[in-house]
Amino acid sequence: MVPVVFGAIVFIYIAMYIIPGDPVQSLVGERPVTEEFRRAIIDRYGLDDPLPTRIAKYVGNLIHFDFGESALSRRQVWDIIKETFPNTARLAVAGTFFLILLGIGSGMISAVRRYSRLDTGVTLATIVLVSTPVFVLGLLLQIFVALKLKDVLGLPITGLDQGLKSYILPGFTLASVSMAYISRLQRTTLLETLESDYVRTARAKGLPERRVIFNHAWRNALIPVVTYLGLDIGTVLGGAILTETVFNINGVGRALAIAISTRDNQVVLGISVFVVVIYLVVNLLVDLLYAVLDPRIRYT
């Protein structure tokens, strides 16, 4: 984990080095910079230190949990993260909920009704969804579902501040990216387990099909799906940038996108490091969950 985080910091510093433009000018916006002011800013943020020194300083501060401050709003980067991350986390939970509900649900239907019209229909529908870019889907849902069907459905157009129903459209939009994969994976693994010996044994004992599927097969079939969900956290974070932008959600993704386009480098760095850490922690948790679901795996 440490080398990955360090690698991320080095990458962003190098990227910031080659970024076109003048960091001091970016701070003041359109007005010309006086020499005194330039000097003050360069000293304040150590802009003319060599790259290794700057990275060492940053890492040193990071160890003391100091993410630096935004050059534009002069707010602590950590405050910005604290304020935006909960929204992204909630959005991610909503997205995962839809993924599980629709992805796993449709995958199970496909498996149980293998080769039926329903199976083909589900496959096609999920492929159309995954082929539609998040931002296109979001924009269309906003206009044609939230606004045009306002009186019927009453779903909010932007933001997450109107209770649970606020999460429906953004959550679905976010989930659309991976839904096809989850559905396909669930179908495949469920089919495999349904043909395994122990399921055959269960059937032979005369258990009803419903119990065979839910009590015996499903649990095992979930393992690869859970693994995929964990691996998918990167896609979720990427999708969050787009979903948050379209739905005006004050999350880390949108904050990052804004910081990059305004060259607010400390914010870019802080959020990226944070996101990388979250990404790694979630992957670790997935490994643990994997062990819970599959008793054959034991961590010693």
Binding site: G21, Q25, S26, E30, R263
Partner: peptide, 10 residues
């Protein structure tokens, strides 16, 4: 030009 106004002005 740049999306960043400071860069753009420069």
């Amino acid at each position: 030009g740049s999306t960043d106004f400071g860069d753009y002005i420069k």
